[in-house]
């Protein structure tokens, strides 16, 4: 089993961290993982994405050409990565910021109002964790407990007081994806 995921949004939305937490969770379950960021002269408000692979076998290329899952945190990301999705692949849309429809009929789409749900648990800056919850729910490849452990590993000590809020956001995302 191999799952290839692209997570994309604008700089500052925490898409890199989402990917790191997901890869870290896979690692805690002794799976093969890789995390490859887009890098370049990018800044807050610019575009950012990362390629994450979680696999039960050795990973060949860490570069994801045809993702199983795309998480689009904003509209430019949806437009850019929807065409690359595998047939039957899953597109997770942050419907708080995207109000248009994807142009493909051969994929599965779920809409998560990530910013609103995050605001409900205390901060709309946790929108990335809501979306991550949706990924975990739909991927069914890493356990939520591993995600929570990985969250702790990846957050700097000074932000550890935010762990309960982030956990709550992840669970909201899972609930939203289940509905």
């Amino acid at each position: 089993m191999i799952k290839e995921i692209i997570i994309a949004g604008f700089g500052g939305q925490g898409v890199m961290l989402m990917g790191q937490i997901l890869a870290g969770a896979g690692m805690l379950e002794n799976k093969e993982v890789s995390w490859l960021p887009s890098y370049g002269p990018e800044m807050r408000g610019g575009t950012a994405n990362c390629h994450v692979i979680v696999s039960s076998e050795r990973i060949s290329s860490p570069f994801v050409g045809e993702p199983d899952v795309v998480v689009a945190m904003n509209l430019p990301s949806m437009d850019k990565f929807t065409p690359q999705l595998k047939k039957g692949g899953l597109l997770i849309i942050n419907s708080s910021l995207i109000d248009s429809e994807p142009q493909r009929q051969d994929i599965r789409v779920i809409k998560i109002p990530a910013n609103e749900l995050a605001a409900e648990v205390g901060s709309d800056r946790a929108a990335n964790m809501v979306a991550l919850g949706a990924v975990v729910e739909k991927l069914k490849f890493v356990e939520v407990d591993s995600i929570i452990s990985s969250l702790k590993d990846n957050l700097p000590e000074r932000h550890h007081r935010l762990i309960p809020l982030n956990e709550e956001a992840i669970k909201r995302g899972m609930d939203a994806a289940r509905e």
Partner: peptide, 10 residues
């Protein structure tokens, strides 16, 4: 190369 330098793996 940039890929080896930038990517994260266990």
């Amino acid at each position: 190369d940039g890929m080896i330098g930038q990517m994260m793996e266990p």
